[in-house]
């Protein structure tokens, strides 16, 4: 069953009471929402996602609600929490941003997680492109653009590595576009479904792009890593690719992981395998089409890897 298969009323009732088990790919989250106006925004953005029925084992539990009666009636605030952490309360009209943060952190903060790297991931021809980068690097705009130009979006937020074969498992949730990136993607791809703009967040303005239909439909298909690119947007810069030294890339990849240390030797083996099997580059860009062209050339030059299944 998909989220959009439930009527608005049925969805609101389920979210308010027992919750839904939202499948976003590799993770399933038990989600409850006790803020009426958030239900419509959730339905709008998550309509094509599936609900696990009957529910299996959830990877996380997320609850979005007003922190108190005072905050429901007088000074509307929303707080999103997972089993182990509460996200900073936000004005209720930004509840969706708090929910998204909780959906990111919920599976990551659980006791049993795969190796996770803060990174965008896309796939083409059965091979994964990993783009770890800090906030503000243009990663989300570039991954949103690639997702409409022949690449399948696996995630804008995290690379989740399978213990089984080291492939990257999809978790294609809405892409968080910030500030200028919102207008850039709206102009770049008319088919992109964007949420309304949430103003005044700590990162400025944020709008979410629903992943293209293919990304959500194929959220069960993982892909082996083939390319690692560190993108950096620089106003007016020409598109420049630079090969990275492997030890330097290893250090940077490990720094980009969320839970490398707790993975012990398995984490070391998985990260060294990524470094050994991938082309490693940094990319400076200001023009999306030119950056996509450069990435496509790198991708075409690499020998096809064995395809992994989920």
């Amino acid at each position: 069953m998909l989220v959009r298969d439930l009527s608005r009323q049925a969805l609101a009732r389920r979210l308010r009471s027992e919750g839904v088990h939202l499948n976003t790919g590799v993770f399933t989250t038990h989600l409850r929402i006790r803020i009426a106006r958030l239900v419509d925004e959730f339905a709008e953005m998550y309509g094509p996602y599936s609900l696990e029925e009957p529910p299996g084992i959830d990877d996380a539990h997320v609850l979005v609600e007003a922190p108190s009666l005072w905050h429901r009636l007088v000074k509307p605030l929303a707080v999103a929490s997972t089993t182990s952490l509460a996200i900073e309360p936000v004005p209720v009209d930004r509840a969706f941003t708090a929910m998204e943060t909780a959906l990111n952190w919920g599976p990551v903060s659980s006791d049993v997680t795969p190796l996770i790297m803060h990174s965008a991931v896309l796939e083409r021809d059965g091979r994964a492109l990993i783009m770890p980068a800090p906030s503000g690097s243009g990663k989300s705009s570039l991954s949103a653009a690639l997702a409409w130009r022949g690449w399948r979006l696996l995630s804008d937020e995290m690379a989740v590595f399978s213990f089984e074969d080291g492939s990257v498992c999809p978790n294609p949730r809405p892409v968080s576009l910030k500030n200028k990136g919102i207008g850039v993607i709206a102009a770049f791809e008319p088919r992109a479904r964007l949420s309304r703009v949430y103003h005044g967040t700590p990162k400025g303005d944020i709008a979410y792009m629903q992943p293209p239909p293919e990304a959500i439909a194929r959220a069960g298909e993982s892909a082996p890593p083939s390319l690692v690119i560190a993108p950096a947007y620089a106003e007016g810069a020409a598109t420049t690719l630079k090969a990275l030294d492997r030890a330097e890339a290893f250090r940077w990849l490990v720094d980009s992981t969320v839970n490398y240390a707790s993975m012990l030797r398995t984490g070391f083996e998985m990260m060294t395998a990524v470094v050994a099997q991938c082309g490693l580059y940094s990319l400076t860009y200001s023009d999306l089409d030119s950056a996509i062209h450069a990435i496509n050339r790198l991708h075409a030059d690499r020998r096809p890897a064995r395809r992994a299944s989920a």
Binding site: A247, V254, L264, R265
Partner: peptide
């Protein structure tokens, strides 16, 4: 000790401490 050599640098994992060293 799992040891890897790349481009003039070594990377090693110490299972006794859980630390990775370049």
């Amino acid at each position: 000790l799992p040891l890897r050599y790349w481009d003039g640098d070594y990377v090693v994992y110490n299972p006794l401490t859980g630390n990775t060293h370049v």
